[in-house]
Design a protein around this nucleic acid. Structure first.
Lengths: 341, 341
DNA sequence: CTGTTAGCGCCTTCAT
DNA sequence: ATGAAGGCGCTAACAG
């Protein structure tokens, strides 16, 4: 056992209560005493046992962070930002990577965070009623990223408006037959973006007086392969689209690959716009909708931090997105300019 | 308070000691009693307080995982694999994302994992003597990924041999003037790969009887931009290389961008090979060295798990890598075939 | 300002 | 097979 509070107390010549107060920075400790305790603690390389402290105080300086898939760029970015903010504030992060639907069920039924966190953050999941209820039983502030629920803190973007903007960009370029490469709305993991981004796509078309064509909506996995498969289907249509809106940059890359493999050109034969502004989007010269990824995570963490010191009413923060026009929608000197297919 | 052990004991008509034994699955509990306790616990939705349990038992079913940057693909992948293995085994993961040199120092001096984890895993850091010593004071098994230290568990690849193989591939293609785009060997974060991959590069050239040219070795950040900057310098040489080995796929992408922007062609003017086999490497048609990323994380986690049940001698596991030849080194029908620059 | 004391909730010998 | 009781190490009232 690496030194207990009693040893520190003995060495500093005070009671353990004073040691606790001094080390916690509580008031009512003489400066000289505090100094003596600090020195004793340092000399013994003492730190309070988090378990004992947690048991006694009810707080534990730990927050649980739940992500669907750490390995995906978006979540890794969000997680990194959250961890930075929290660790700067002296909090530790318990990570829960759901990975699949089973992991998700296991998390919400087992609730491994029970009795061991001061707050919980959940990223990009469309929560069911019972899941929200389960989080409620934790009796700690809960924050969600990418969506909003009554009673929970939230930080997000306006996926519908952002997607509408992407499609409006294509419309402004003269495109009338525009495809959607979306996320699976039936995916058991139920992410929040797929539905919203499809809604934005539809709204933009309808506002332009263009009839929706179910054939032009292709849903699949949020991956490069998913985007490629979807694009292949769109290219096989009797009347293929002249432009597509992909719900993520990765799907857009897959679409581009399918277009090239079909011997067609981007953006002349098919214009492509993605969503995210992934780090490689510039390299790929991909038009896209930029969303503040790390910032969403950071803001959510900050929000929870303030909630932890003085329970405030749940807040909902909506951050801005930005249309980024590159060579995949507008012909110009670019990596596409000299690519035959 | 969400139900204590006493309530369960009362409801099951036994003592709290029996509840503890039954729930922990310890022997010497009558089947009927165990069943009664389980039911009572389920009905009260009871779980033991991890803090109280940890205080009393000394174990806490939690593992600390330290990564330099969660947001980088490699670490996100590794972390995801580690989390999966550990959570399947009933362990929780405390994540520490160092982020920068200050974060690194803070971690090793503060040691926030003290008294709160059963084991620690550290990814890809070239540890200093005092850092290893600090980890030693934790008195728990420690595993490292990507390198090896006496007394610690390790899982890694042979970076030197793998890099040598990449350069040998270029040599076999007839290249004689081969550049290195490496990681910064003076980076304060001191990763393990930069040194080893440079060593492999040098070994391959020397074995082929080619004199090393310091001008051909460019070190920088392990990012796309870093690779681009390095390539720009190489292209500015009086006698530019006909091929380059980039120490990561991301750096290779940057190199490709620089080559294109200089109006040159891949692989005809400059052949490029990367390292990792990042998910997008196939799309980019990038030749590279594939390393098992998730598997390294998974194996390390499994190793620690077995160490936790019966302290075994530290082990060192070296996994295989594989050369993947694509269009960035060998001319063929590819995305490069029709790209002017 | 400081010490005393009562838990926090559970695990784990030691009896029985 | 089960119960009783002593901590685990610390925080937080309450005295003084």
């Amino acid at each position: 056992m690496a030194g207990s509070i009693e040893e520190v107390a003995a060495r500093a010549g005070v009671s353990i209560a004073t040691v606790s107060r001094a080390l916690l920075g509580l008031p009512h400790v003489a400066a000289a005493t505090r100094e003596r305790v600090w020195r004793a603690a340092r000399e013994l390389d003492y730190v309070a046992s988090p378990f004992a402290a947690g048991l006694a105080s009810g707080r534990c300086s730990t927050v649980g962070v739940v992500v669907p898939f750490v390995k995906r760029w978006f979540f890794a970015e969000v997680l990194g930002a959250i961890e930075s903010v929290l660790s700067d504030a002296g909090y530790d992060v318990l990570l829960y990577n759901l990975a699949d639907i089973e992991g998700r069920e296991r998390f919400f039924t087992t609730l491994p965070v029970r009795k061991r966190v001061d707050a919980v953050l959940v990223a990009s999941l469309a929560l069911t009623g019972s899941e929200v209820a389960a989080l409620g039983t934790l009796q700690v502030p809960v924050g969600v990223l990418g969506t909003r629920y009554p009673g929970l803190f939230s930080v997000r973007i306006d996926d519908v408006a952002a997607s509408r903007g992407a499609v409006q960009h294509l419309l402004a370029l003269g495109h009338r037959r525009i495809g959607l490469i979306g996320g699976d709305t039936d995916d058991p993991m139920r992410f929040t973006p797929p539905l919203d981004r499809r809604a934005g796509y539809r709204q933009a078309l309808q506002a332009a007086g263009i009839a929706l064509d179910p054939e032009l909506e292709r849903l699949g996995h949020f991956t490069l392969e998913g985007g490629q498969a979807a694009m292949r289907q769109l290219l096989a249509l009797a009347s293929r689209p002249s432009a597509v809106f992909a719900a993520s940059d990765e799907m857009a890359y897959g679409a581009i690959r399918a277009i090239r493999r079909a011997g067609l050109t981007v953006p002349d034969d098919v214009a492509v716009i993605g969503f995210d502004d992934h780090a490689t989007a510039e390299l790929m010269d991909l038009s896209t909708v930029r969303q503040p990824v790390a910032e969403q995570g950071a803001r959510l963490a900050q929000t929870l931090l303030t909630a932890l010191k003085g329970a405030i009413e749940p807040t909902d923060l909506v951050l801005d997105t930005e249309l980024v026009v590159r060579g995949s929608t507008v012909a110009r000197a670019s990596v596409y300019a000299d690519t035959a297919g």
